[in-house]
């Protein structure tokens, strides 16, 4: 028996395709038909395509939402710091960037790549949640 329940034409035994379909005709040699039937089976058992997209949107909200709504508790354990809002964290980093003396162009670049990283990460999630396989 082949991986995936595809019958082997050489094993000389009766073959059963996953999903309980009669495989006799398939074992007779129409392998393309087997693949098609298998594919249909797989599609039927799969979650609806919109679910991945909906989850993608949900994940975006789940990642960014709490950061935007609730204060962030900084640090951990003995080193736990204040609970502050996201804009305060970002502002403080911006000020430290300014203080390091790399100039405004570098600051814009740093924030630009941060935005790009976030956008690309969400695009990556879009692809990862794509249902095709």
């Amino acid at each position: 028996m082949m991986p995936g329940g595809v019958p082997s034409i050489d094993d000389g035994k009766s073959a059963v395709v996953s999903g309980g379909r009669d495989a006799a005709a398939v074992a007779g040699g129409d392998r393309t038909e087997t693949a098609r039937v298998e594919d249909q089976d797989r599609q039927a058992r799969r979650p609806p395509p919109w679910l991945g997209r909906a989850l993608w949107a949900l994940v975006m909200v789940a990642i960014l939402g709490p950061l935007l709504v609730f204060p962030v508790t900084l640090g951990a354990g003995d080193d736990v710091g204040d609970a502050v809002r996201l804009p305060a964290v970002l502002r403080s980093f911006d000020r430290t960037l300014a203080a390091t003396g790399w100039g405004d162009a570098a600051r814009v670049f740093v924030w630009g790549v941060a935005g790009l990283a976030l956008l690309a990460a969400f695009a990556l999630l879009w692809v990862a949640f794509a249902s095709e396989e």
Partner: peptide, 22 residues
């Protein structure tokens, strides 16, 4: 397909949390 999305989402969420909170 959903599972792999959730794995990648968890990794992205971990990175966002680490940068913002730490």
């Amino acid at each position: 397909p959903i599972g792999r999305g959730i794995v990648v989402a968890a990794l992205v969420a971990l990175n966002v949390t680490l940068f913002v909170g730490y």
